[in-house]
């Protein structure tokens, strides 16, 4: 079983989620090769080569991969795929965008967002917003898999794999990135944060959302998350949405403030180690799974909490 793992990166840095996906890839069997496709991304390849248990790094350094757009990236992976039994990626924007394209071109049914590897062809994944766990066997000879990285431990460092350059594949030239609106934030990334403070509809405005959560997040060195209702109302940026259709997180500590606990929200955070809920409604569903619940008004309690830390 030879596995090709797609590295997640921004041309400068290897994203930490790659190490989690590597654990899943290694569970399929050895050896594992990592593909770093990007532009001016040699440092990323070095970082990938230093991950433990990687046999080789393939480096496709070419302007056509600068934005890791699905069309050219899938064309490259399909060209490389004949040498591999499995193609794996973290279920990030890039992974979710690209791998189904690869799968279709290989006539393979992808297994999305796996949470365990039971054997090289059998995996567990969540369906219905996490209300059921399915064990599936992939019957296609080749496997194409995306990984829920919060469900796998990060592979340790300590590798020294060779880095081999691979030539770029023909670019189908089907789409063009015209603008990136990347949010600049001093806060930790949601996917990597040890602590997350998350806000819901209760905040009432973006000003109040920021005024109450920023100082708290600062004290805890936490990432900020949000419910769909808070994002829809414009209190928080889209990429902060936690849930079935947003980001799935599993930090050490998740503090849900003014969030009711709809199943779609719980789907994104219920594997957090410790959950705290602060809500004025003692019957809010979030309390049913919170380790520590505090009934009361966020406008009073959050400043108090920030002060007490």
């Amino acid at each position: 079983m030879t596995t090709l793992l797609l590295a997640e990166h921004d041309n400068n840095r290897l994203d930490a989620q790659t190490a989690n996906a590597l654990t899943a890839a290694a569970g399929l069997g050895q050896p594992v090769h990592i593909l770093v496709a990007g532009s001016g991304c040699a440092a990323v390849a070095d970082a990938a080569a230093a991950l433990g248990g990687v046999a080789r790094v393939l480096l496709a350094d070419d302007p056509r991969y600068a934005d890791r757009a699905a069309e050219p990236l899938a064309a490259l992976i399909v060209e490389l795929a004949s040498g591999y039994d499995a193609v794996v990626a973290a279920a990030t924007s890039t992974g979710k965008d690209t791998l189904p394209r690869v799968a279709a071109l290989l006539d393979v049914m992808q297994v999305s967002d796996i949470v365990t590897v039971e054997s090289p062809d059998t995996f567990r994944r969540l369906i219905y917003a996490g209300n059921a766990i399915e064990t599936v066997r992939a019957t296609d000879a080749k496997k194409v898999i995306t990984v829920r990285t919060s469900a796998f431990a990060a592979a340790p460092a300590g590798g020294s794999a060779d880095i081999a350059a691979v030539t770029a594949a023909a670019d189908p030239g089907l789409a063009r990135v015209v603008e990136e609106r990347t949010a600049k934030s001093d806060r930790p990334q949601l996917a990597a944060a040890r602590v997350i403070v998350s806000g819901g509809r209760a905040f009432g405005s973006k000003e109040q959302f920021d005024a109450l959560l920023n100082p708290l997040a600062e004290k805890l060195n936490a990432a900020i998350g949000a419910s769909r209702a808070a994002v829809d109302a414009g209190y928080a940026a889209n990429e902060l949405q936690v849930g079935q259709t947003g980001k799935v997180v599993a930090p050490e500590l998740y503090i849900a403030c003014g969030i009711s606990g709809a199943i779609q929200h719980l789907a994104g955070m219920k594997d957090s180690k410790v959950i705290v809920a602060i809500n004025s409604d003692a019957d809010a569903p979030i309390f049913a799974l919170a380790d520590y619940g505090l009934v009361g008004d966020i406008f009073q309690l959050l400043p108090e909490l920030t002060e007490a830390l």
């Binding site: 059998t122 996490g130 064990t135 599936v136 066997r137 992939a138 959950i275 705290v276 520590y292």
Partner: peptide, 30 residues
């Protein structure tokens, strides 16, 4: 279908915890 569903199960239920009465108690517990 190309994926064979072998088994479907409920996710392990997360046990609810406790209610605390104040911010001070919460911070202490954490």
């Amino acid at each position: 279908p190309r994926l064979e569903v072998l088994h479907t199960e409920e996710p392990p239920a997360r046990k609810g915890g406790i209610m605390v009465g104040s911010v001070a108690e919460l911070v202490d517990k954490l």
